[in-house]
Design a protein around this nucleic acid. Structure first.
Lengths: 287, 287
DNA sequence: CTACAAATGTAATCATAGTTTCAAAGTAAT
DNA sequence: ATTACTTTGAAACTATGATTACATTTGTAG
């Protein structure tokens, strides 16, 4: 493997001249960031002239300062992108290039980026809206996100009253909007291939005074122009389709957050639900 | 405290134009290293022109690209000398104990464990079964996993013919089994609070000579006694409910794998679908 | 469909960074 | 002390990066 700049410097340190050693000292001092500015700045920091710097990087084996700097940049990048988990293979039983590993790589990165860019205030605001039972809650999704919206709906129904699922994919949704009143919340999932009917729905809901919450991709659905709160998720994947894993994560986190926020009320609802399950014998008793 | 470039970008993201968002995406993608090269390189990576970059950094409040880059450099330097970054907090904008960070922690660990314990041969076997159009495919889920099963069904329908979704939650599923013949595949999602009807379904399908595939949790559904192939997922979460994110990940990976396996046939199906969408004007043209 | 405004890229211009030349200063050997 | 050689930085030069002006394209309202 190729040496890092650091190693090279140490290797040839003895053959360096006075000014060059001075410079080498500064570079190593807080390596590798010191070399990230311009050649002039580095020269000044080491109190030598720019030609001295230029000459030394050539001694180190680089064609010029830019190449030297590129090397440093790459080193920084390597250290950055996940000190530990850089190239761990997720499924050890499969080769690194197996779709299991490639896909998981992408998804992990999606999740990291989604979380890194999330605005926690928006999240908290949305949690508060969803937890407020005075506001009726409408949930809807598009073709791909329908499943997610249904999943959220299922859980929200357990947590609180007045939750409704709108099938955005049907054309019956205007009926659902009849009951909507000022201050109600409409939560919309919308990712690319943004659908026209979803946009219309948001528009109409907005007109009726509803709060619009949006969960969308990094390119943002046009619905965002009407939304009061929105969360952006990364959805890229090595596939012909996008990955909604990060949206699923956010949805579940929302469920957990809302649930936490109103545990008092939810607890009794859950018990009631359990009782009903018991009576209908849907589930196996203790496996 | 002064905002980081990252925060600033997110804050004004809404007011950005198409090309600028494209650029913002690239910057955030592997922030902050992407901004460390020259303006030209950054522009190329984002497929926009250099003026677009120059304009955006000004929108962000910097006097020009060099100042912007200086800021990034300082951020990198700060993170470098800061050893606390070890235990990474996913959403930096929220405290470590925020549900966003706690939940994500759990989910990341679920994914790691799920992948670590997966048997890639089982996965490949399942991929092959799903890719084989000679076998009709039936997909079903339980109360919680219904959404997942529907999601998989949606995609499988695009990829291949003869796919059917069985609503395990209704009591009409015996009807769906009438057409089932030897060698067909039944894919079942089943996680805890395993449902009786799901078990019955598996039993009957097995009797009719179907291959049973199972996606379940780490405690394993009783369906596994009938299954020919099964994948186990971790689903624990700091919540009153389980997290199905890892199942979603596996499902999407399966979709990608099957799709890859039969891309020749799938491609034309997807085009046909696109054409139909165009005709029905469901989607917005290029946002 | 037309007219206008906004967005974006091309190309010219300007600024700064990087390199090279060369002369001055330092150093060591005679 | 003189000469030959090495080191070094000032300054000229060159290349590349950043900015600006302007034309083209794209989208939108009338």
């Amino acid at each position: 493997m190729k040496d890092t700049a650091q190693e090279t410097i140490n290797k040839i340190y003895d053959s360096l001249t006075r000014a060059e050693r001075q410079l080498a000292g500064v570079i190593l001092e807080n390596y590798p960031m010191s070399g990230m500015g311009s050649i002039t700045r580095l020269a000044e920091k080491a109190s030598v002239s720019t030609p001295t710097v230029a000459r030394m990087v050539q001694k180190l084996g680089y064609s010029g300062f830019p190449e030297f700097q590129d090397t440093l940049r790459q080193e920084v990048e390597a250290r950055f992108s996940n000190p530990i988990a850089k190239h761990e293979s997720w499924a050890q039983s499969a080769p690194e290039a197996h779709i299991l590993n490639r896909f998981t790589d992408a998804v992990m990165s999606n999740i990291r980026q989604t979380l890194a860019n999330i605005d926690s205030e928006q999240f908290d605001l949305l949690t508060a809206l969803l937890a407020d039972e005075k506001r009726a809650l409408y949930i809807t999704g598009g073709r791909i996100t329908h499943a997610l919206s249904e999943y959220l709906h299922l859980h929200m129904q357990v947590i609180r009253a007045r939750v409704r699922h709108i099938r955005g994919t049907s054309n019956a949704w205007p009926h659902d909007l009849l009951d909507m009143s000022e201050g109600d919340v409409v939560l919309i999932y919308d990712i690319r291939r943004y659908e026209n009917s979803t946009l219309r729905l948001a528009e109409i809901a907005k007109e009726r005074g509803a709060k619009i919450a949006l969960i969308t991709d990094q390119w943002q659905s046009p619905v965002s122009q009407y939304s009061d709160v929105s969360l952006k998720c990364r959805i890229e994947a090595p596939s012909a389709w996008d990955s909604t894993v990060s949206m699923m994560l956010l949805s579940e986190t929302l469920i957990a957050a809302v649930q936490e926020a109103r545990w008092d009320q939810t607890e009794s609802r859950m018990h009631a639900l359990e009782d009903m399950f018991d009576q209908t014998k849907i589930f196996r008793k203790f496996v």
